[in-house]
């Protein structure tokens, strides 16, 4: 009976793992085998890497996790992906779990490490290297590969203020400051707005993360009513692309095609709206593949026994406008 039970538990575990890693689990296995045969010397062989994020529902986070999974398994590592659906406390517990199970490396994706410091400390004390992709950096971590969010904020806000608005006008910002990346962009927005006397901030509105498009639609619809005259709002500056999409839909519905909207991330729905010539004029594509490349490279060095320099490393971002939007659509 006991045997049967443990067998059943194991089976359940395997099944749930398979379910979690979705369709990619099969490719994982085959690629692992071939990798094992061909280059047994790969520093990743036999290593387990835990990829952890609370924001898997976000398109971009999902993309990064996908790249990580592909690249790491191609190198021969075993990858387990853990998503906690917006729940940081849950993520903290999961970190404790993988630490206890002795994983070889933890990669945080889009998760602020300062909120998880205690658990990460434990992992690092246990000798588990902690990497970040688009996350943040705390002492003791190896590398956080990210776009320089501050720079991205400057890039898009600068483009909006100088090129699209001609240096003056009124702006609404849609933000989500609990997010480690978005908050840096917002800080860049703040600085640029403060530095320019001819810019007026009408209001900053926080957009919740569960359904940002829908919520941004409602918020912008209400703000349009509060500022009903054409030209009373020059632009809407969004911390990431989803609220920008919602804002665009609201402006289209209200027939306010004079309002300029920009976002950050290079999300596909946003890029196609840019291409269609709607209110949404520009976004900044983060180089997610570039970030993942950095982390995989540094991890490889570490596994091979080399010492690496710790700290933030940046992958360069690209501005997307109507001119080059087509290149970013699959």
């Amino acid at each position: 009976m006991k045997k049967f039970l443990s067998l059943l538990t194991a089976l359940m575990l395997v099944l749930s793992l398979a379910a979690c890693s979705g369709t990619s689990s099969q490719t994982t296995q085959t690629s692992q085998e071939s990798a094992g045969e061909e280059e047994a010397s790969s520093p990743f062989a036999g290593k387990t890497v835990s990829v952890m994020t609370p924001y898997m529902a976000s398109v971009t986070t999902n993309q990064m996790v996908g790249y990580l999974e592909n690249d790491l398994t191609a190198q021969g590592a075993e990858v387990s992906v853990i998503d906690t659906a917006n729940d940081f406390a849950e993520l903290a517990s999961r970190i404790e779990d993988v630490t206890a199970s002795g994983t070889d490396a933890i990669v945080l994706v889009s998760a602020d490490p300062t909120q998880l410091e205690n658990q990460l400390r434990e992992a690092m004390d246990a000798g588990i290297p902690v990497f970040g992709v688009d996350s943040g950096f705390i002492d003791g971590m190896q590398v956080n590969a990210t776009s320089d969010n501050h720079q991205m904020g400057e890039l898009i806000a600068g483009y909006l203020f100088d090129d699209l608005m001609g240096g003056e006008g009124t702006v609404i910002t849609l933000t989500h400051r609990p997010h480690p990346g978005v908050v840096k962009r917002c800080e860049a927005f703040d600085e640029l707005i403060a530095a320019n006397d001819k810019l007026t901030l009408i209001t900053e509105q926080h957009v919740p993360a569960e359904q940002p498009i829908n919520d941004a639609q409602d918020i912008v619809q209400n703000l349009l009513l509060a500022n009903p005259d054409k030209g009373s709002i020059t632009a809407i500056l969004c911390g990431w692309d989803e609220p920008a999409i919602g804002a665009t839909q609201a402006c289209q519905e209200a027939g306010r095609d004079e309002i300029i909207i920009v976002g950050v991330d290079g999300n596909e729905q946003a890029v196609s709206l840019i291409q269609e010539g709607t209110n949404l004029k520009a976004t900044v594509a983060q180089n997610f593949q570039g970030m993942v490349d950095i982390v995989v490279e540094q991890m490889g060095k570490l596994f091979a026994g080399e010492t690496i320099e710790t700290g933030e490393m940046y992958a360069e971002a690209t501005l997307i406008t109507a001119d080059n939007a087509a290149d970013f659509i699959k």
Partner: peptide, 8 residues
């Protein structure tokens, strides 16, 4: 919204 967010 023209898309389906998994936590909508």
């Amino acid at each position: 919204v023209g898309s389906a967010n998994t936590t909508a």
